[in-house]
């Protein structure tokens, strides 16, 4: 059993063709997911039960079930219903690409919402009291005091989440999408060379992870430049 280097050299470019799709899935889901997360967060901390309850239930369901199941429900499950097939969303939901984005967005939104909430909870209460004492309204305190500090606090967890999201994009291959993982699986099916293909694919993912972590690390450094590190 040999380690076929030629195969690796041949396959890497083929897999990299999928990198565009991988990134599209990653970036679009991240952006939409974060927007959803902010909405969920605002609902969660609004204090009004009719906003808090749906938000809590949504987060609970999407964090409590496997993302693969969520993908299957959206891609395989929704077409079961006629009203879906006839709705305006059908062009999106009939395509694996659309379904993957919807599923990743809905799932990621729940996780990021909790991460942002962690950041919000981490803001020192004394700072908010100072804002109150100065006469700032609830909205003003949230925008000028809570948000900048919460964002900085949330960066490490958020960057981990982006890495997780990138790993989840590989699941799009289970609904026929030809991202890097999808292409890799087809190559393996033809060549019976799981080691060469999957290991090189893993290396590609690791490189991407490295870039993501470095990027966020720099961002965090910049945001923290005036904060004294606790000894």
């Amino acid at each position: 059993m040999s380690f076929d280097l030629l195969l690796i050299v041949d396959s890497i470019p083929k897999m990299l063709v999928g990198i565009g799709l991988t990134f599209e899935l990653l970036v679009i889901s991240m952006v939409l997911g974060t927007a959803l997360a902010i909405t969920l967060l605002l609902m969660r901390i609004s204090g009004r039960w009719y906003l808090v309850a749906p938000s809590v239930v949504y987060i609970y369901i999407f964090r409590g079930t496997p993302i693969l199941v969520q993908i299957f429900i959206i891609y395989h499950g929704l077409p079961q219903f006629e009203f879906i097939r006839e709705s305006i969303f059908w062009p999106i939901l009939s395509e694996p690409y659309g379904c993957a984005i919807v599923a990743l967005t809905l799932n990621n939104g729940a996780y990021v919402s909790e991460i942002l909430r962690g950041g919000v909870l981490g803001v020192d209460r004394g700072l908010l009291e100072a804002g109150s004492a100065l006469g700032l309204s609830v909205r003003q305190r949230f925008i000028h005091i809570t948000t900048p500090i919460a964002v900085r606090l949330a960066i490490p967890a958020y960057s981990n989440d982006v890495v997780s999201l990138m790993k989840s994009t590989a699941l799009a291959s289970t609904i026929t999408l030809l991202d890097m993982m999808g292409i890799a699986r087809t190559i393996v099916a033809e060549t019976y060379a799981p080691y060469e293909i999957f290991i090189s694919l893993a290396v590609i993912y690791l490189v991407i992870t490295w870039f993501i972590q470095k990027g966020f690390g720099l961002f965090e450094q910049r945001m923290s430049r005036y904060v004294r590190k606790e000894a």
Binding site: D124, G126, L127, E129, A130, H144, I145, P148, I149, R152, Y226, V227
Partner: peptide, 9 residues
């Protein structure tokens, strides 16, 4: 306040 509570950012 006792702990100053200046806005760090």
């Amino acid at each position: 306040f006792q702990s100053f509570n200046l806005f760090p950012h």
